[in-house]
Amino acid sequence: MRRRVLHTAVALCLTTALTHVGLVFLHVAPSNVVSQRYRSQVDAWVYPLFEQNWRLFAPDPDSVNRQISARTAHTTPDGSLQVSGWVDLTAVDASAIEHNAFPSHTSQNMLRRSWTSYVELHGGDDLSRSDRAVMMQRYLRNIAADRMAERDGKPFENIQLRVVTLPVAAPGSTDRDRRAAAPKNAETRLLPWWKVASDA
């Protein structure tokens, strides 16, 4: 009996692993008949957790620095609204990477990639026009909510993000030049308040 359970577990693990590899391959491979036919199934499996953004032969490095901050709101039992101060989530990620020989993928990419995907799907108006856009909005919200919950453990029902975008300074710029140019070149985007629900 134990042997049968073990064989079943191994077979299930192998099947899952092979299915995963196959679906990710179809996602990253050049468009073909099979990937087009099963696009919805492949996308359902890959997004957002297994998204591949390989640009091995045409790298597209970021030309801007983004500071993603969050704040939360909590309604107290007496009905008053408590809004937290802004927390720089990008700085938290940067501190987890700095001086770390083996930084985690989560610290390096999760917040940044979720924001990039959000912007690609929403543009500048924060309206979700597709199921994938709704999914990416929830994904970004959940990342921010998890980070804020880990930070101080205080309860909150709503979260808001603020993204400050600055162009990458030209090579050879001094710190003084960068500080002087920063306020002029900064672009700030304030997202709407999002409810942190049980589906978060």
Rank of each mutant, 00 (worst) to 15 (best):
R112N: 03
Y118A: 00
R2T: 13
A44R: 04
L49R: 11
L121H: 05
E187A: 11
A73I: 00
R162G: 12
A11Y: 12
L6N: 08
V10G: 05
R151H: 13
F156V: 00
D199R: 10
A197L: 14
V64F: 13
D177E: 15
P171N: 06
P61T: 03
G124K: 07
S80K: 13
V163C: 03
H20M: 03
V24Q: 03
W54M: 13
D152M: 01
E157C: 08
G22H: 02
G153T: 04
L190I: 10
T75W: 10
L140H: 02
T19E: 05
V196P: 05
N32L: 05
T90K: 00
F50C: 09
G172H: 05
W54L: 14
V92L: 11
R178F: 03
A186V: 04
K184Q: 15
V87L: 09
R189P: 01
V164Q: 08
H27K: 06
T16W: 13
V83Q: 01
A181V: 07
P171Q: 02
L18D: 07
A169T: 00
V28E: 12
I159W: 00
A91K: 10
N185E: 15
A180G: 04
L111W: 00
Y139M: 05
R129H: 12
A145H: 00
P155E: 08
F156Q: 02
P61N: 03
V34F: 05
A170S: 06
A170P: 04
V42L: 01
M1S: 15
D88A: 03
N158R: 15
H27W: 12
N53W: 09
L18R: 10
N109I: 07
Q160F: 01
V34I: 07
A186E: 03
T16Y: 15
T75Q: 08
P48F: 01
F57D: 07
T19S: 14
A181L: 15
M110Q: 13
R141D: 09
H20G: 07
R2L: 14
A94K: 10
D62F: 09
T19K: 07
S130F: 03
L18A: 11
P192C: 04
S35I: 05
D125A: 01
L127V: 15
A96G: 07
A170T: 10
P183S: 02
A58S: 12
Q137C: 09
A58K: 11
I143N: 06
T16C: 14
D62E: 13
L26S: 07
S114D: 09
M1C: 09
P48Y: 08
S40N: 11
S63L: 11
E150T: 07
Y118G: 04
G79R: 03
E120L: 11
G85F: 02
K154S: 10
V196A: 00
R132Y: 04
S63G: 12
S114G: 03
T15K: 10
R4H: 13
A44L: 03
Y47H: 14
D78T: 11
S198L: 13
L190C: 04
H7P: 08
S130Y: 00
D146I: 12
A133P: 04
M1W: 14
P61Y: 02
T76I: 06
L56D: 04
T15A: 15
A133K: 00
A200E: 06
L89H: 06
L18I: 14
Y139A: 08
V83A: 01
L26E: 12
A180P: 01
N142P: 02
R189Y: 12
T165S: 09
L111P: 00
A91H: 02
